[in-house]
Amino acid sequence: MLDVSRVQKELVEIKRDEKLSGVSIEISEGDLTRMRGTIGGPHGTPYEGGVFIVDIQLPSAYPFEPPKMQFVTKVWHPNISSQNGAICLDILKDQWSPALTLKTALLSLQALLSTPEPDDPQDAVVAQQYLRDYATFMGTARYWTESFAKRGALGIKEKLVKLVEMGFSEDTARVALENCGGDENAALEKLCGG
């Protein structure tokens, strides 16, 4: 049986300092076993400025078993599947402890965004790129953050349309956007400059 009172306490605790911690949780439709976590992309990383949504499922044996977490927002990161958002993180597997909480798990995911472990990858393609061509990795990660993790901002498609309207070809505009991590102004400068 799920320890309901502990889960409720955890939710209150997360709510209490969600502005400070940068992580928050919403329950889906009154079902305590299904939640949505959000993580702010850490500063100084290609994920900065993005808001990443994580699907959380609590097994009935929680907290004696780890919560199941998976990224809903697409992320370009060696330890997160670019296909389905599956996460490779030890505390969500064999290193789980009942003294950990949903909040500490989300904070660990935030820390994982800051410090990728390419030697223990979830996504081999991303990990290879990280190890062999770090600059391209950073560009792609920023581009994905820009395209998938920013709400309110112009989507990448709209930015592309704007650049094409200015007279650049779609292909060169896309490459420029990708190289600038989705920053339309930087892309425009690049297109004009060279």
Binding site: D3, S5, R6, K9, E10, P63, P98, A99
Partner: peptide
Amino acid sequence: DACGICRM
């Protein structure tokens, strides 16, 4: 104050 497992 509280048990680290159940948080009670």
